[in-house]
């Protein structure tokens, strides 16, 4: 194992975030606050409770999920795309480092950053509403697995993309709608039966539901199923990355 190399990439990526702290932390936090104010107070004044939880507190897990999904993806995608774009990737490709180690470095850093972001948003939300976390360890597990999986997805996008606009397409056109429709702002049980069934095809539902369960023990789907699904996504992402490196897809000519 080339540990110094993993560490070098990890540190490089963390430093990049540190330099652009405003972008990497402040803007997701601010937009979460805005969601919180707009949805929490505007809708919260109509819907006072969902499943016995105040509306403001109810949306916190979904908001955190929403942020870390998009941030994990865009962070990891940018992290690997940028060296490809500038050409500095030559150095990583010529270094004595395995595909697994490259992935650990880039994905590990992107996942750590969004994990930190998730916790910062949680702390911010705590200023607005009282929040209790019934299963802190499971909460952290969900957070970690989600950050990791979606950082991998971002890593794949960063390798696939051949232009900056493509980096944005998936977070914008896929993840954002799925997160909005995945129960960030409402409980699935509030939907008509047909849409309840349709919603089960939305992978984000399982993430938000399981994550919310770790806070309040309320869930749209069984928490075991949520855990199973996120593990499945993780396995899928790892498989695709393994294939990319096996074939040298888009990294080597």
């Amino acid at each position: 194992m080339n540990t110094p190399a993993i560490w070098a990439i990890y540190k490089f990526e963390m430093m990049r975030a540190w330099r652009t702290l405003g972008q990497s932390l402040a803007s997701p936090v601010i937009s979460t606050c805005l969601y919180f104010i707009v949805f929490g107070s505007a809708i919260g004044s109509r819907i006072t409770e969902v499943d016995g939880i105040s509306y403001g507190a109810f949306i916190v897990p979904g908001l955190i999920m929403f942020s870390i999904l998009t941030q994990s993806i865009s962070n990891a995608a940018f992290g690997i795309y940028f060296p490809r774009f500038t050409g500095t990737i030559y150095e990583v490709l010529s270094a004595p480092i395995s595909p697994l180690e490259i992935t650990l470095g880039y994905v590990g850093a992107a996942a750590s950053k969004s994990m930190i972001l998730g916790l910062v948003i949680l702390a911010t939300a705590h200023l607005f509403v009282p929040i209790e976390i019934k299963h802190p360890l499971i909460m952290l597990l969900f957070l970690a697995l989600t950050c990791l999986t979606f950082a991998m997805l971002g890593f794949i996008i960063g390798i696939w993309a051949d232009g900056f606009e493509k980096l944005q397409i998936i977070p914008l056109l896929v993840i954002t709608p799925l997160a909005f429709l995945g129960g960030t702002f409402y409980s699935i049980s509030m939907l008509p039966p047909f849409w309840q069934t349709m919603t089960l095809f939305n992978p984000v539902v399982y993430l938000i539901s399981g994550f919310r369960w770790s806070f309040y023990e309320i869930a749209d789907v069984n928490v075991g199923l949520s855990l199973l699904m996120i593990t499945l996504f993780l396995g899928l992402a790892m498989g695709v990355i393994w294939w990319i490196f096996k074939t040298g897809y888009r990294l080597k000519t």
């Binding site: 190399a5 070098a8 540190k11 150095e91």
Partner: peptide
């Protein structure tokens, strides 16, 4: 320093 790390030193 990054390069050195990348090469496992």
């Amino acid at each position: 320093s990054f390069s050195r790390g990348l090469f496992g030193k």
